[in-house]
């Protein structure tokens, strides 16, 4: 088997809080990604999805501690901290953020900002870099002449397009997209998703799409992982997650998502996610789960393979547990 483009192994992130408290935001997540693959990281607010990809980019604030390995083409880019991440940031791995509005410096032209990462990584400079900035803008559907404009002269959708152009500046292999369409209208969302999937196939770009929006992942990604309370609850082909979910959280999340022409009731999941500043002995979802049984509150379920390429962390899938109860 060939080496995956990206392999994340036992990634942990802790945030140091005031008064010595500590928040365990990401708890040993693992996933990998092939070249050109589109992978979804799904979950609700506070589940650690954004923290996970910020850790991949080495962009966490100083009060964060990271453990685990992130292999990019076989090289562990986290092994030496900033020293080993920075040569890859923007060059091999680029990111677009939810608030496209805030990703740009308001006092510099959009073109200048697209040129910046090219200069930083010695990809291009001078006229060559400016020409490339223009081409990149054309690629994302913005007239090259608008490179001289300032971010406030762009609409929200155009700013997100420009942010994508900036992310593509150094020809990355991997694009991390954090809620890229959340602040946008549905029509603009459709335009941006069409652009992202087009770029992924045209440039062989791998995409990690981080979102709370299951239908977006279902339409864009071939595989996805569902996160809850800093852990991966289930991962596998999006088709299996929808048609054969093996974790109650995945099933309930889909049931809570209204389908335009669906007739059934829409579920809500009672309760709220657990606090992450204290140890959770059993399954983090147990207090809200509709299938909880005896081991759930005390024994932590392991991520078990339930089918080829499909894993879930639920005792219901573990014959030994199901029998013992």
């Amino acid at each position: 088997m060939s080496q995956p483009l990206l392999r994340v192994e036992s990634l942990h992130v802790w945030f140091e809080l005031k008064r010595g408290a500590e928040l365990h935001a990401v708890k040993g997540i693992c996933f990998d990604l092939d070249r050109g693959e589109k992978f979804g990281l799904v979950g609700e607010s506070g589940c650690g999805k954004t923290t996970s990809i910020l850790a991949l980019m080495g962009l966490l604030p100083p009060n964060a501690t990271v453990a685990g390995s992130v292999f990019l083409d076989g090289e562990d880019i986290l092994s030496k901290g900033e020293e080993s991440v920075s040569p890859h940031r923007w060059k091999d791995v680029a990111m677009i953020f939810q608030g496209a509005m805030n990703a740009f410096n308001p006092v510099k032209t959009v073109g200048d900002q697209i040129v910046e990462p090219m200069k930083l990584h010695g990809v291009a400079e001078g006229k060559q870099a400016r020409d490339r900035a223009g081409e990149l803008l054309e690629t994302v559907g913005i007239a090259a002449a608008r490179a001289d404009r300032y971010p406030h002269e762009f609409s929200g959708g155009m700013r997100q397009r420009a942010a994508i152009a900036m992310a593509l500046a150094c020809n990355p292999k991997l694009l991390l997209a954090d809620e890229p369409t959340t602040a946008l209208d549905v029509m603009v969302q459709a335009q941006i998703l069409e652009l992202l999937t087009g770029l992924a196939s045209d440039f062989g770009l791998a995409l990690v799409l981080v979102t709370h929006d299951l239908p977006v992942v279902a339409q864009v990604c071939g595989r996805a992982a569902v996160m809850y309370a800093g852990e991966i609850m289930e991962s596998g082909p999006t088709d299996a997650l929808y048609h054969d979910p093996r974790h109650p959280y995945t099933r309930l999340l889909f049931a809570a998502t209204p389908d335009l022409l669906g007739e059934g009731d829409i579920a809500s999941i009672p309760g709220s996610p657990p606090r992450l500043d204290r140890e959770i002995p059993g399954c983090p979802f147990a207090p809200r789960c509709d299938r909880t049984f005896s081991p759930c509150p005390t024994v932590k379920p392991r991520l078990l393979q339930v089918a080829a390429g499909h894993e879930a962390a639920c005792h219901l899938n573990d014959p030994a547990m199901a029998q013992a109860s």
Binding site: M187, L193, D213, P215, A218, Q219, D239, F254, T257, D259
Partner: peptide, 12 residues
């Protein structure tokens, strides 16, 4: 058009 761009939760 607005209805057509609402993403569907079923990947199929």
């Amino acid at each position: 058009a607005l209805l057509s761009v609402v993403p569907k939760p079923d990947p199929r």
